[in-house]
Nucleic acid binder design. Structure first.
Length: 130
RNA sequence: CCAGGCGGGAUAGGCGGUCGCGGUUCCGCGGAAACGCGGGACUGAGGAAAGUCCGGGCUCCAUUGGGCAAGCCGCUGGCUAACGGCCAGGGGGAGCAAUCCCGGGAAAGUGCCACAGAAAAUAAACCGCCCUGAGUCUCGCUGAAUAAGCGGGAUUGAAGGGUAAGGGUGAAACGGUGGGGUAAGAGCCCACCAGUGAUGGAAGCAAUUCCGUCAGCUAGGCAAACCCCGGCAGGAGCAAGGCCAAAUAGGGAGACGCUUGAGGCUGGCCCGGCCGAUAUGUCUCCGGGUAGGCCGCUUGAGGGUUAUGGCAACAUAACUCCCAGAGAAAUGACCGCUGUUCCCGCUCAAACAGGAAACAGAACCCGGCUUAUUUCCCGCCUGGCGCU
RNA sequence: CGGGGCAUAGCGCAGAUUGGUAGCGCACUGGCAUGGGGUGUCAGAGGCCGCGGGUUCAAGUCCCGCUGCCCCGA
């Protein structure tokens, strides 16, 4: 059950971390999201959320972040599994930044889950091939 | 019953379950501590939290004055910490009415008023009207005469003068109606009415209202144009500001005295004022500061109830309550049952099935304004129709 | 969260000082010149000035409220 929690230590909170992941991490897109990720030294998996300021008004931006966090909380062990398999290395960490763009505020939780699941699984598969 | 006006209030669907999040605090374990892990209790968005349009608190900066410029407000009185807000009163406008909207000064000065129109603001005089009337034509008389003179008439008549009644314009035309008067006219004079100024009295704290007297006889609009009058205000904002303080770079920093005076500051500008590179002497000290962390950070012009004063806004007193404090930023996801309203389908109707239910997220804190918005409820008032 | 700016023809800009029938360049349409095109030349069309109120006789311009876009401050 501890897998389904989401504490402060599971979040990316420093602006230099965001800058580092954006600079040296890898990225890919789905229909409504841009995902940056990078292998990290720790053994955990961390999440940062960013919503475009073109998503208006403020309460819709907040809702986007909540849904992304909720998705991450429910599926973190799966995501970790995919990337550990891709890198062929158990116990490595992952920093993940999800950027939401306009249009994302209209998604339901089910639609969001489907889109992010598909995107992440596909990306992990491509990493493994290389 | 229908239509309308004003004011106030409720709600932001509810209950349960599973998995989670922020804050405070307690217990257990680990640890030198910071803290970490596990568990419990309490608690966790709004009426607009919004726009950032005003006003304050709070914080730092500036503060030795003087002058200038710029800004905002504007009927009167009150309330308030303050306001561009609120309450009461007064005036003007809209409406049958309830009610709503607006507000210093145009007689201190400057400026503007396109087009049209004679003229757009100390009135002027284009047409017109009226008077005088050179000249021209004509008639009569004197005369020999068609010369000259005298007199009369006509004129679509040079020129001079009077006048502002009328002139179709314009958003707006320099009092209105009637009478007298005159060559024609005119507040030129008179009566009534409207308006202005001065002044006397009455009511009111005042804005203002009412009743008189006198005067000149009349004064266009725009200050959300400059401006005048009265009032307000130093500047910036919690990313304010304070404390701790890695890595890296660097060897300085501060105080005082004396001389030189490049340059800089004085937060709109000027006068004025102040600091001061460099060189030199003495003394003291390890500091400044980025990442990051901590504080500021929620007990406050606070909420509720009652009483008293006041038409009211509001004030005072007593009792009582503690009600988010994050920092890449907490309230969410899924499931079950269910309330209200609306839509669609079937139906005489109902039941039933399905769908929908707003605007929107605290970021230092308050008082307002403005804007967005769901479903209703209550009270008072106005007009109309019907019945008694 | 706080502070500030902009919006006018399809595009880029004037006009806002001092309110009075809104213009310039490119692009567009048509005529002429050429065998045809480019180019040149002549003519024309295209705007309720971001939206809604107010002041005024009259608003792109002055005042108030919204909407959208952009910039600055750790």
């Amino acid at each position: 059950m501890a897998e389904a929690r989401f504490r402060k230590s599971d979040r990316i909170r420093l602006s230099r971390d965001y800058a580092r992941i954006k600079e040296s991490g890898k990225r890919f897109r789905t229909r409504h999201f841009l995902l940056n990720y990078q292998r990290s030294d720790g053994d955990g998996i961390r999440l940062g959320t960013v919503v475009s300021s073109r998503v208006r008004p403020a309460h819709k931006r907040n809702r986007c972040k909540r849904l992304i966090r909720e998705y991450f909380r429910m599926n973190r062990s799966e995501i970790k599994g995919w990337f550990e398999f891709a890198w062929n290395h158990n116990g490595s960490g992952l920093d993940l930044v999800v950027v939401a763009y306009p249009g994302a505020e209209g998604l339901s939780f089910g639609e969001l889950k489907q889109e992010l699941n598909a995107g992440l699984e596909q990306e992990a598969g491509q990493v493994r091939k290389r």
